[in-house]
Design a protein around this nucleic acid. Sequence first.
DNA 1: AACGTAACCAACCGCCACTCT
DNA 2: GAGAGTGGCGGTTGGTTACGT
Length: 296
Amino acid sequence: MDVHGQGFSSGTQSEEEMDLRRGPWTMEEDLILVNYITNHGEGRWNSLARCAGLKRTGKSCRLRWLNYLRPDVRRGNITPEEQLLILELHSRWGNRWSKIAQHLPGRTDNEIKNYWRTRVQKHAKQLQCDVNSKQFKDTMRYLWMPRLVERIRAAATASSNNNIIDNTTTTTTTTITELPNGQLIPQNYDVGCAQVKQNYTRENSCTGASSDSFGTTTTQVVSPTSDLTDYYFRGNDFQAAPIQFPESLTSPLGYFNHGLDFSTADQSGWFGGDMTENTWNMDDIWFSQQQSYNGI
DNA sequence: AACGTAACCAACCGCCACTCT
DNA sequence: GAGAGTGGCGGTTGGTTACGT
């Protein structure tokens, strides 16, 4: 229990008395903890910390073990499959990080939480919408998640087909089916909403030759028959297909003009420079606005 | 090269629920 | 039943690194 938490209330030694360490763990401390747990197992963290000779709280030892030292822990490089699961499970359970983490082997709730806060919430903030808003959730479901699926498919196709593009790919959205044994299976179904998308020039697009963590950019290229693929690259020139907006819809530029403050977006680098690390690009923003407009 | 800012992530904090005595 | 001890969870903070000017 933490020295400041309830676990060290009256009757226990104060932090000063125990001379407890705080802050980053040293390699020596890590070794002591790993060796002790290897020999004695987990559990009873406070007594474990004392017996191991660590000047740490049990809570700190537990956290260090679970989030960092555990042999099966995986850190960094969250795969598209994992991103997809996180998005889906968060839409289902909200901030139940530990519950979500249970379905991502080797991932800790802390890492998933950090991922969500740094990568996902950031873009909600940039969009000036709440991360729990329907607009944001719909954008995740109808835009990011299908793109992740496309990206996963592309990777699978590339590896199994010597980089031959899968021409049967269609725009999809994803749902996760939970099997009785708890295993989660991503499943896809076609959606029509993306058909209203598209058509802008390179000037108002952030599309580039590489992809971000959500497959924002290259998914269009790898999925030529997708509804997202009415534009393509020809050498260095960005080509756009003829505009086919439904009458009820406003073109992207129309929305750009009244839907968002793009002076801010521009200042923050959304329009220029390397956009490859941005989760959101212009079609994302337009799509989001479109959904809001249509009351989706 | 120096500085400022943004992004990332390990660690901490506070609360709650559970178990044990 | 009450209180202490503990584990677990979600939220937050602060240090470090990366990046941009």
